[in-house]
Design a protein around this nucleic acid. Structure first.
Lengths: 211, 211
DNA sequence: CTAATTTAATTTGTATACAAAATCCAGTGG
DNA sequence: CCACTGGATTTTGTATACAAATTAAATTAG
């Protein structure tokens, strides 16, 4: 277990609920669990803290942050502001080659039958990211990446809304078509609806759980 | 030099140009310079990296990121999206008590004659933050804080635009007045202009420097 | 019985020493 | 002259050991 991979592993384990929300992580237990010394554990924890994938619990201990509907809503609102911006800035630089790549990705999601819900989620995000990356905005992309990671925790294994997956997927095709035909404003509008719907679905789901 | 303060110190030293843009920081030199072992240095570096106040230079080394006009513009565009959002979400929760506090702050900036440009910059940001904090949006506030830190590097000692300081300050008073009289939309519009102007001024300045 | 305070336990923070990796540079071959 | 490979050197990554701080518990005063 090398340094970078410990960070990745811890992140994945947090996503997958190995260390559930509310768990206080201490360095010693983690170092025993992952069979490394406390030093690389500290490095990984520090990085996760900086990304808000861990939060302070008390004066010196770190906790897996609880999942609240309010924060999920907040995260989606932020995405709702930033992702359209990314799309707008990417638009002038979208080549047909890139749109083709994106299309291949969507087709792959459709055709590959034995994808897990998590895999499909990852590919869907890869689709969004592919478009955004054309913007060449390093800070914006970094923020979007970070926000997505946050949101991922709320999606669990993304089994929440299997019936929504189809709608979402179709919107991806529509988005691509609008971009191909140079209809930026329409594409942005669609993207906003896309994000807002996903957000509302999630928040509604979370509120139901908490009651 | 304790852990938290080493991080703060390093951050300040980066802002103030002790380690100029483009400098590759290595752990050993820093540990000698700050008279601590490499472990707390590593911690601080890791944290600064996560906040993009340092960037990778090669495979394993960290660099103080160069200042480019394009990135400054990007940062201001992001703020332009997020700060109005923060103000909108804060608005319903703005008490007269809070507005009063904000007013005190502005007055203090006006009256205190022997404030450095950096001090005044810090107080101005504190003014913005005071309003935004009423939103109770932890993630949004975290992002704004991070973005501000990034932008601070570009401002240098904020001596760039002393003639703009007055305009900016007056807009702060106007903003407060609009909020007090419940004119949210007007306040948001003003805030957008406020940020955009500052951004354009900075970007113009940077472009002049680079030619 | 509650609340505060002191003491013991655990946990984090730091230094030193060593291992692994990356970087640099000279030497070789094209 | 340039690209490339080899080893030497620097730099980062990790483990262990110890110091400092935090947390938890227990004791005592109110």
């Amino acid at each position: 277990m090398t340094k970078a991979s410990l960070y990745q592993q811890l992140k994945q384990d947090i996503r997958q609920g190995v260390w559930p929300a509310g768990t206080v992580l201490n360095q010693q237990k983690l170092s025993e669990y992952y069979q490394v010394s406390r030093i690389p554990v500290r490095d990984a924890l520090q990085q996760l803290k900086a990304e808000a994938l861990l939060v302070m619990a008390g004066k010196a201990s770190l906790m897996v942050p609880p999942l609240t509907a309010a924060e999920a809503e907040e995260l989606y609102q932020i995405r709702l502001q930033l992702e359209p911006m990314a799309l707008r800035r990417a638009f002038p630089q979208l080549s047909f080659a890139l749109l083709g790549q994106a299309e291949d990705l969507l087709q792959r999601i459709e055709q590959d039958q034995h994808l897990s819900a998590a895999d499909r989620g990852a590919l869907n995000w890869q689709f969004h990211l592919m478009l955004y990356q054309a913007s060449h905005c390093p800070h914006l992309l970094r923020l979007l990446h970070s926000l997505h990671q946050q949101v991922e925790r709320y999606l669990g294994f993304q089994e929440i809304s299997l019936n929504y997956a189809d709608t979402s997927h179709q919107e991806h095709w529509q988005l691509l078509e609008l971009l191909r035909s140079q209809q930026l404003d329409a594409a942005v509008t669609l993207l906003q609806q896309h994000i807002q719907q996903a957000g509302e679905l999630l928040v509604t789901h979370l509120r139901q759980l908490s009651t």
